[in-house]
């Protein structure tokens, strides 16, 4: 990557995955029109899903996925020792993601349901920051590649990145989407952090809150107004529990 003849340094980066669907790392290979320059800005030295190269001299570790087994905890600690910058990449890493909903069930019963009399090793699902210190969190299920590109530009240029503080509703209004509430549907847009460009309401689906809370969410008012519009406690609870971002404030 060269701009105006200046050669910036290309940080060495590792992409590592834990309990997840690997959809966030897949986004790194998406947005194909800028894939060349994007890859050129980095030195990808360790990215198991797309490369057999396995170097351990990375400076930035993008961590995808939640933690749900002891061997994952050990792996994370080793990564923290090597990486200067640890990035929780995607909602699984930031909040536990959908997997966190497993914690609402008994692990023994869950094991019996899926594996019968041959239970497998598993633990409560936890986000990365509960195991090791995290320097930067990029939420989203999946992450938004445009936002990732902006963040990488900031990393390369050593300029701090500021996430939007406002809720998804702002971006939703900017694209003139009909509000899901006007169609009689629940939407977490008013309490969820923007940055995704509000693709869900535009595509015909309320916001499920994958990016977690905005800077100053008014939960009481949100829940009260959702109830006033006829949405039941069970539905609100299910929605707010979905990606783990509202852990602790779910009614």
């Amino acid at each position: 990557m060269r701009y105006l003849g200046i050669e910036p340094k290309r940080p060495k980066i590792a992409v590592v995955d834990f309990t997840c669907c690997e959809g966030c790392e897949l986004q790194l290979a998406n947005k194909e029109e800028t894939l060349g320059p994007f890859l050129g800005a980095l030195q990808v030295v360790n990215f198991r899903e797309v490369s057999s190269e396995k170097r351990e001299d990375y400076e930035i570790a993008l961590i995808e996925g939640a933690v749900s087994r002891a061997d994952e905890t050990d792996r994370l600690r080793r990564i923290r020792k090597q990486a200067k910058v640890v990035v929780a990449f995607g909602s699984c890493a930031c909040y536990g993601g959908v997997h966190r909903m497993k914690n609402a069930y008994s692990l023994a019963a869950a094991n019996r349901e899926v594996y019968g009399d041959k239970p497998k090793d598993t633990d409560l699902v936890r986000p990365v920051k509960e195991i090791i210190p995290v320097d930067l969190e990029i939420p989203g299920c999946p992450v938004n590649k445009e936002e990732v590109e902006r963040i990488v530009q900031h990393l390369v240029m050593e300029v701090p990145y500021n996430f939007p503080v406002y809720p998804v509703c702002v971006e939703c209004k900017q694209r003139f989407t009909v509000c899901r509430y006007d169609l009689g549907e629940l939407c977490l847009g008013p309490i969820t952090r923007a940055g995704c460009g509000a693709p869900c309401p535009a595509g015909g689906l309320g916001c499920w809150g994958c990016r977690g809370p905005d800077a100053d969410p008014n939960y009481e008012e949100f829940i009260a107004s959702a109830k006033k519009r006829g949405f039941g406690e069970r539905e609100i609870k299910e929605r707010m529990s979905f990606f783990g971002g509202f852990e602790g404030v779910v009614p």
Binding site: F18, R69, H99, M101, V114, W208, E238, F242
Partner: peptide, 21 residues
Amino acid sequence: ETPRYFEVMLQGKHYTSAGIL
């Protein structure tokens, strides 16, 4: 791979959430 227990997490979910999960 670490098991994730989606079949268990589906239990009790509303039909509008099943495809999203």
